[in-house]
């Protein structure tokens, strides 16, 4: 399922000491199926590893997953690390981002302030993240792709 002519690379990983792998496995499959080149860093990925991989692969997007409730502390200073490494990419975060019963809107604000372009909850469908990324990267689906989406 190819679209446009050039490929787009995304870096994907679970930040901190979180070992939840199912979500990013599904995301890897979904983004690959949607035509992206996916660099999956796996679980327990440090801020530096995200930055390094984004530079090495000239990634257009950095997708961070966190499911164990410590995302906020794991992401402190993350965007400074990306900037220092010279990463110029869209950054998303998704998962169970807060331990408590906070309203998701408050959580979204917190992570937007940390520098993420988009913030998703754990119920988000992979298709929605793909859709958002296409919009942010101004990728237009091909005819065949459009057919698939509407089916």
């Amino acid at each position: 399922m190819v679209f446009n002519t050039m490929s787009h690379t995304v870096v994907l990983g679970v930040i901190g000491s979180d070992a939840h792998v199912v979500g990013i496995t599904i995301l890897e499959q979904a983004f690959s199926a949607a035509g992206f080149d996916v660099i999956n860093l796996g679980v327990q990925t440090s801020q530096e590893e995200f930055a390094e991989a984004a530079v090495d692969h000239d990634a257009e997007a950095v997708l961070v997953s966190s499911l164990y409730g410590h995302a906020e502390q794991d992401c402190q200073g993350f965007h400074e690390v990306l900037e220092e490494a010279g990463v110029d990419a869209v950054s998303y975060i998704g998962g169970n981002l807060a331990v408590g019963q906070d309203e998701f809107e408050q959580t979204r604000r917190t992570f937007r302030e940390l520098g993420f372009d988009r913030v998703f909850d754990s119920e988000t469908d992979p298709e929605d993240a793909i859709e958002a990324l296409r919009e942010d990267l101004q990728i237009k689906p091909t005819e065949s792709e459009r057919a698939t989406i509407s089916s």
Binding site: V14, H20, V21, G42, V43
Partner: peptide, 14 residues
Amino acid sequence: VPFAPSDSAKGAVL
């Protein structure tokens, strides 16, 4: 092993 976080397994089986 599917969904294996470890680098010791490919985790490529689904």
